[in-house]
Structures are given as C-alpha cells and as structure tokens.
Design a protein around this nucleic acid. Structure first.
Lengths: 208, 208
DNA sequence: GTCATAACCGACGAGGATGTCGGTTATGGG
DNA sequence: CCCATAACCGACATCCTCGTCGGTTATGAC
C-alpha cells in the first residue's frame, strides 16, 4: 500500500527512508511490542531481511525513528514561534505550533507521546531525554509567568505546572485526532481560555 | 516477594484475589504485551497453570483487573466528593480525590491510565468505556462553568475542554509518582491555580 | 478416619517473533 | 562489455510465550 513503483531496486538511503516511514506508522499504530518486523517490512514493500541490512535490531530501528521524528518536531515548533511578544501571545503561538505539528504529522505525534509501554531501558532513556528537553523549553518560556504566579522556576512544583501544561496539550491533541472536524484555531482558543484565563473567568477575550 | 505463608494451599477466592493483585502490579509495570504470564504467576507465588485454573486467558485476566480497579476508583472518588458547594470547591474536591487515589493505589492509576498500547479490540472497548464514563461525569460536574465560559455543554469543543482537564490531571499524577515528596495539598493548589485561575492571573496588573 | 472436591503442578504442543547466513541479481562505473 | 558492489531474498535456528492436559495431594465435610 506504499510506493507502488513496480519492483525497482532502490538506493540504500532511499530505502532507509521508506523503512523508517513505514516503521513510524506501524509503531505508532500498534505499539512497540505488538508490531512484528514483518509488518514494517511489507509496509515498506520489502522483505524482513532487508530491514536487518539497514538496521541491526528492532530496538535501534524504533530509536532511530523516535529521534528522527523528534528532530522534525523541534524544527517544526522552532520555525513558528518567535520568542518575542507578550507571554500570552507566546503561549498561544506555541500551542498553535504544536497542534499544527499534530495536524500535519499525526503518526509522529502518536509515536512520540502516546505510548508508555516499552520496558527496554535504552528506549526509555531516549524517551526520557525527549520529554526532558520539552519540559525545559517550556519552563524557560514561561519562567516569568510562573514566578508571577508564585512558582519559583527552580522549585519542584513549578516543574509540576509545566508537566500539567504539556500533558494537557498532548491530551487535547489526542482528542483532536478523534474529532478532526474541529478547526485548529478553535482548539487553540479553547486551550487558551482554560489555561490562560482559567475556568473561573467569565468570558473575557484572550491575548491575540 | 508476596505472601510468605509457607506453601499453604489457599481457598479459590483468596487465590484469585492474590492473582489479580499480582497481575495489577506486573501489568502496570511492564504493559500488556511485555508481561509474561510466568511473571504474574511467580509474583502471586504460584505456577502458570494455576492462572489458567482461575482465568481463561491473559486477556480476560487484564480485563478483570481493569474493571476491578476502575470500580475501586469510582468508589474512591464517589466517597469523597459531595456534589454541593461552589464550582471551585467541587473542582478542588475532585482533584483532591483523584490525587488521593493516585497516592493510595499508584499501580491502579498506572494500569488504568498510562498505557495505550493494547491492540486487542476487546481490551480497547473496555478502556474506552472507562474513559467515556469519566469524561461524562466531569462534563456533568462542570456543565454550568463550561457554559459560563461560552462552551455549550453539548458541543464538541466542550468535550475537548473536559479532555484537557482529565489529561492534565493524569499528567500531574504521573509527575507526582516521580516526585513523591511533594505533599498532596500543594499539588492540588498548583492545579487549581492554573486550571481555575489561569496563568494570566496577576496580583497587580502588569504596569508595562 | 475416609473420601470427594478442588487447589496445585510439570510437561507438552503449537505458534510466532527475532536475528543470521548464504545465495542471487540488478546497477553503475570503468 | 564486464564486473565489483550492494540491494535484495528464502530459509533456518533459536527462543519465548500462550494455553492444555493429566496427574498429585491438601482440605474440609461427614
């Protein structure tokens, strides 16, 4: 169901790209343990052996895809947040950037953030590194606002607040994947109204 | 490492309870596909065959544990939220109840909400049912506040907001599991300050 | 005490997955 | 045209896990 170029032999790097692409979708759909290398192979239009010509094991294949897609995410986000503007504007821009990524690469989002099942220590380490950089980036972005709220940016509880923001955003993206008809802007607005203004607020426009 | 009663033979129902207890911890720790029945068996101080004397398959063992623990959760939450009081008080009480559950039964929380890997349709259905009842309950609880914010309780976007609340709470609980030294009340306070008051809240409007 | 019940176990069969190895054939440079 | 390289494949060996089956022995009722 992938590239239908009939039986042509590909250059190594190209084949590699096809394999990682296939691995992304299958891993995202089934999870690590439940996916067989066979599935990835057929999805890439190739035999299982070929996977082992390019990657030494299932584990490093996953890790490769993970880091690859995370790099794309970082690039995607970085390309569309300015770093300037009011705190509210920056938060809004970041939310929009993340949802935009979720919209354009739904499988990548799933693979990166939906699963928690892998028990392999090496994989766990990679995942943890990715999460760590995310929380740090957000903590830096919101340092001023957090301290204004009484959370010293270095305390544990400030970290918790960052975690709250990240998980809520992920959760929203997850929900969006099941209700794709909602336009992105509406989603951003909803998130801003809760996270920025709070549930107690009577309808009051948010920073635009 | 479980019951050290030396080699005594147990009554069926008791053994069943021990097995589901063991299954809870192992499933929560490793995930569904990665756990072998052997691990559960030894954790329950018994041989694999005994599991099959009590449960027809690995799948229904998981489902049983899932529903069992969910029932406990519902009971736990229901026992300590009143339904009366101001919306803010109700939200606070619910958050506190959920974190209390996470504190007393960390494995149950993990099993119920951390994993997304199972591909089995039957398991998925059970999970979805659990999630569904949760979101519905929260939607009812916050219906008034949501409409005050401009979210009609029946619209899709209101559902999204509920999802945001749930995932943020789960995320916070997950973080708490990694930082257990923080007292529960502080966690509740942090969650309330963000979700109820919003990040924009200032004691004094920013002069600049 | 004795005896039926039921809790428990060891071993087996079948299926499926990972990773390896040697062979085959397209491809592109000389 | 020729040939070395490398892309590709089929088959195998090994390991692991689920679920089954027949047998053994503790336990509680009588």
């Amino acid at each position: 169901m992938e590239t239908e170029e009939p039986k042509k032999r590909m250059r190594g790097s190209v084949r590699r790209a096809h394999i990682t692409e296939a691995a992304l979708t299958v891993f995202a759909a089934r999870g690590y343990h439940a996916t067989a290398m066979e599935e990835i192979a057929t999805a890439a239009g190739v035999t299982r052996s070929v996977l082992y010509d390019h990657f030494p094991s299932k584990r490093v294949l996953l890790i490769t895809v993970l880091q690859e897609q995370n790099a794309l995410l970082v690039e995607h986000i970085g390309a569309r947040i300015t770093g300037s503007g009011s705190p509210g504007q920056r938060l809004r821009a970041t939310l929009d950037a993340y949802f935009s990524f979720a919209e354009h690469r739904p499988m990548a989002r799933r693979l990166l953030f939906d699963h928690t099942d892998e028990n392999d220590p090496e994989i766990k380490a990679v995942r943890w590194g990715i999460r760590e950089t995310r929380t740090r980036a957000v903590a830096v972005m919101l340092a001023r606002d957090l301290s204004r709220l009484g959370f010293d940016a270095e305390t544990e509880i400030a970290q918790a607040v960052v975690e709250l923001l990240l998980s809520s955003t992920d959760g929203l993206a997850q929900w969006w994947a099941r209700h794709p008809s909602v336009p992105r802007e509406e989603l951003v607005n909803a998130a801003m109204r809760v996270l920025w203004n709070g549930l107690s607020q009577v309808t009051e426009p948010d920073p635009r």
